[in-house]
Design a protein around this nucleic acid. Sequence first.
DNA 1: AATTAATGTGTAATTTGCACACAATATTTA
DNA 2: TAAATATTGTGTGCAAATTACACATTAATT
Lengths: 269, 269
Amino acid sequence: MCKLHINLYLYIMDNKKQYTELLVDPSSFLPGVSIDCVVIGFDLTELNILLLQLKKHDLWMLPGGFIHLNEDMDQAATRILEERTGIKLPYLKQFHTFGDVNRRENTKFPGVNHMLGEPFEKMIAFLEKRFISSGYLSLVDIRNCAPTPDAMSDECTWIPVNLLPVLLYDHGDIVKKAMEQLRSRINYMPVGISLMPEKFTMKEFQTLYEKILNKSLDRGNFQKKMLKLEFLVRHEKKLSGGAHKAPYLYSFNKNRYNELVEKGIGYIN
Amino acid sequence: MCKLHINLYLYIMDNKKQYTELLVDPSSFLPGVSIDCVVIGFDLTELNILLLQLKKHDLWMLPGGFIHLNEDMDQAATRILEERTGIKLPYLKQFHTFGDVNRRENTKFPGVNHMLGEPFEKMIAFLEKRFISSGYLSLVDIRNCAPTPDAMSDECTWIPVNLLPVLLYDHGDIVKKAMEQLRSRINYMPVGISLMPEKFTMKEFQTLYEKILNKSLDRGNFQKKMLKLEFLVRHEKKLSGGAHKAPYLYSFNKNRYNELVEKGIGYIN
DNA sequence: AATTAATGTGTAATTTGCACACAATATTTA
DNA sequence: TAAATATTGTGTGCAAATTACACATTAATT
């Protein structure tokens, strides 16, 4: 779903204001294909997913959009994501294309049948056709990310993956598939650099792995394994964390880390 | 590319015969999206890929087609593959969607500009629009497969992967990505059951792995590893294979094998 | 100064990976 | 008929990785 899409539908719902400046000629888009982004962030405790909300209808959805005719699909995904989060150069990868006939049947837009003014007709016709959607998985640092809800007051919020509301269309399936992808390809994705803050404790890093893999890991073995790979730089200790030994802070040697990710590192076997 | 597409273009090239009975209303297809199948077979020596050839133009391409409006994308892939190979219930999985603007620029159809009769105009207009294409990887037993070239005398042939000709559009990239997918997911695909004949020797099974992984494996370790997993059933020996000890023949315990493939087995680490 | 709770590291048992050796055996050949 | 041949089936030893703990360390609290 792109801004255009949302705004248009909001217009349909409200039927008050004029948002014609947001209208784009749908013939500039590749028909039949949309892009949906599963943007994952980590708050050092839980994995979160970036969702858009249409407040009036309590309707949640993935940020998405359409592909311009002169635009590569990957470019379109990058553009759409930047429009939504303000983040540039995120880790972003296509993971699956969803093409069931009924993929929009589960949770539909409410009240689409209400009608509206003339300039929207082409767009409505475009939107109501059948679409397949390519899912893109993005890993971003939740702290560098400025989700920007658009002019129409819909919200753009991080929601914990285990507390997801019912989503539009098949977006729930798309998120599920993205999480499976993340789990099964964890060794080949830069989960650390993409999801962790600049400095972090080993415990926090381990929590990331545990949340992705959905199982607990042995603390000692995790620490030794990660240290032996030599992509972590140790810094000063983090004090005042409680009545116990203070942990070191770590950061990434990015060159070394990216090298290793190419070949596949980590904690699946 | 589907029969329709090929035949249509042959018509354009020849401009002699009438194949109007093959014409389909393009509005019955989802616009902007095609499917291309990378069908892989194993002849006990090499991996082969099923290609279609337009003889007159020495043009090779993947079997492909379009998605009917009332058809799931996976269904469409199954249908297209069955039309091409006669095989039902193959292993068939979407692996990537190719969406570059220029994906049809490298190797184009020759001489599309020649014109033609009226009933084709809609179809031509449909075909010349921009398409993205979802790649499906299929693993089939080359011996149970009856490739059926269509009425128009194009060929449908198994070609060894290391001897591929230049392919239409970006089909070379699609094959390459499919092979990477096969290699990296070998432990999660039923490569054995899908690609091997009913009975086979351990040597032949090992060759399959070596061709997929593109490296040689230690014979003794391969044999022990596979036997320990207990999905192979040992049969009588295969005699008259030369001046040496005769190898056993093996087949799959399909239940056990499929169980293991679910969890991931095999020879990547 | 003792207690507490979490961190950093060590160790032993087990499993797996890897390289190679050796024995077994259909067929060929002398 | 017996030796030679080439390939299969299996064993063995060493290195590396995995796993499950144990133990020592230490910043803050009591």
